[in-house]
């Protein structure tokens, strides 16, 4: 007996909400991407805890795919940030207002 399953889930929930708060309240695009990373990581933690509770490997297999999704998401996201920084000279989400008339 290590820890109750609820504690692992609660830790994952707190981490996920921290990522969400970071993605909502920061204006910097890189910090928004970091918030998304924290959220993906927290969901992985919940998967691993559930995998241990039910003694099945499926949760761990899903974490593997979450890693793949996170890696490709970061590659595309950072490339987009560099691209838009080259165009507008800013990484602040509030400065992308060129569509405004």
């Amino acid at each position: 007996m290590m820890v109750p399953y609820g504690n692992v889930l609660l830790l994952a929930i707190i981490l996920f909400l921290m990522g969400a708060v970071c993605a909502i309240s920061r204006r910097n695009l890189i910090m928004i991407l970091i918030g998304v990373e924290i959220m993906l990581n927290a969901s992985g933690l919940a998967f691993v805890g559930a995998s241990l509770k039910w003694q099945q490997f499926d949760g761990q297999a899903f974490v593997l795919f979450i890693f793949a999704v996170a890696a490709s998401e970061v590659a595309i996201g950072l490339a987009l940030i560099v691209y838009s920084h080259r165009r507008t000279g800013s990484v602040n989400a509030d400065h992308y207002n060129r569509l405004k008339g």
Binding site: E37, L45, V48, L52, Q60, V63, L64, A70, V74, L78
Partner: peptide, 25 residues
């Protein structure tokens, strides 16, 4: 992850997240 019984995922977490993704950032 290692404590919860996933040593392979623990290695991947350090290699991919702490290594690759954060260095990219």
């Amino acid at each position: 992850f290692y404590l919860l019984g996933a040593p392979f995922l623990a290695a991947l977490e350090v290699i991919i997240y702490a290594g690759a993704i954060m260095v990219l950032f």
